[in-house]
């Protein structure tokens, strides 16, 4: 299928706060790829896992309002970087399509709110967009800088690759590795790539949440990775923000950069340090500065 001429961007709440580097790097990457994008006007919170724990029908309607707004713009493809948003929007479409009772609620809500039915809207994820619409070959051609001798673990997390998406295979996803390799990054075999980071557990049952992230970081280190690459703002936050605590608890010297895929790709395509939000990292700051600070003479050899 032909890639769309323009994308809508649904940020969700995280990409405006803790995950701001994801927004910065995604928009920079799209600009470098000359892909037009505009933010969905007046979008609302997707509801995430919290709304689903209170009411399934309300959660579905809340998520679907965004797709109705997208339909109004006339742009079909909604780029949804956050895994929780991606799953929630997809799930709401699925419930509305397959369960008559939900469909009835949806009809009623859209009519009352004066919104159109969002039949044709497609919820897309940046990873799958880079892989399918841009393509590995083009990414390879457009690469202007390479990270020499840096090995990374691609961490897909949970919700983006699970039942409602088409980001990648839920059991054995490989597309992030392929995208990273296309822009010249060496990836390691990472068996925990789809194990959940615990999501909001670091804020609620803190000890358990931190433990899960320790396991993920430790395994990446054991496999020889110097950094973890993520596609979800919550994964990035959890893995990045609690490393000091992990060091204190375990005594192990873990200080690992946790990057967004769009930061690595954007840098390879020629993006700048700050416009990719690389200055917003909490852990592994020295390594990040060392890798992504452009030395003039090195650049000409690519």
């Amino acid at each position: 299928m032909e890639p769309p001429a323009k994308y809508l961007y649904y940020p969700g709440c995280s990409l405006k706060a803790t995950g701001i580097a994801y927004e910065e790097s995604l928009l920079t990457t799209l600009r470098l790829l000359e892909i037009p994008v505009e933010e969905l006007p007046d979008w609302n919170c997707c509801g995430a896992t919290a709304y689903m724990s209170v009411s399934q029908s309300s959660a579905t309607l809340l998520a679907l309002r965004n797709l109705a707004l997208a339909h109004q713009t006339g742009i079909r493809d909604v780029l949804t970087p956050c895994s929780a948003c991606y799953l929630t929007l997809r799930k709401s479409q699925e419930l509305a399509a397959h369960y008559p009772e939900t469909a009835k609620d949806v009809e009623q809500f859209l009519e009352q709110a004066g919104l159109p039915h969002p039949d044709s809207v497609r919820v897309r994820h940046p990873l799958e967009m880079l892989y399918n619409d841009v393509g590995i070959r083009r990414l390879r051609e457009l690469t202007v800088r390479r990270l020499q001798g840096v090995r990374m673990a691609s961490y897909y997390g949970c919700q983006a690759v699970r039942p409602y998406g088409e980001v990648d295979d839920p059991h054995e996803p490989v597309r992030m590795d392929e995208v990273l390799q296309a822009v010249g990054v060496e990836t390691v075999d990472y068996p925990l790539k789809t194990k959940c980071c615990g999501g909001s557990l670091t804020g609620t049952i803190h000890e358990v949440g931190v433990r899960l992230n320790y396991i993920l970081l430790k395994e990446a280190q054991r496999k020889g990775a110097q950094a973890v690459v993520t596609i979800c703002p919550l994964c990035q936050f959890n893995l990045d923000a609690y490393q000091r605590e992990i060091r204190k608890q375990t005594g192990e010297p873990i200080d690992m950069p946790v990057l967004y895929l769009t930061q690595v790709v954007g840098w390879a395509l020629g993006g700048g340090f700050r416009e990719l939000g690389l200055h917003r990292a909490i852990s592994g700051r020295k390594l990040i500065e060392q890798w992504f600070t452009v030395k003039k003479e090195a650049e000409t050899y690519v």
Partner: peptide, 27 residues
């Protein structure tokens, strides 16, 4: 840590067409 990296937002956003949400049953 979040504050010094510019990742802590104290802003409370609000959508313009908040009225549309009243048609969603609370619980």
């Amino acid at each position: 840590d979040l504050w010094r990296t510019g990742r802590l937002s104290l802003r409370k956003g609000r959508i313009r067409r908040i009225g549309e949400l009243q048609f969603i049953p609370v619980a």
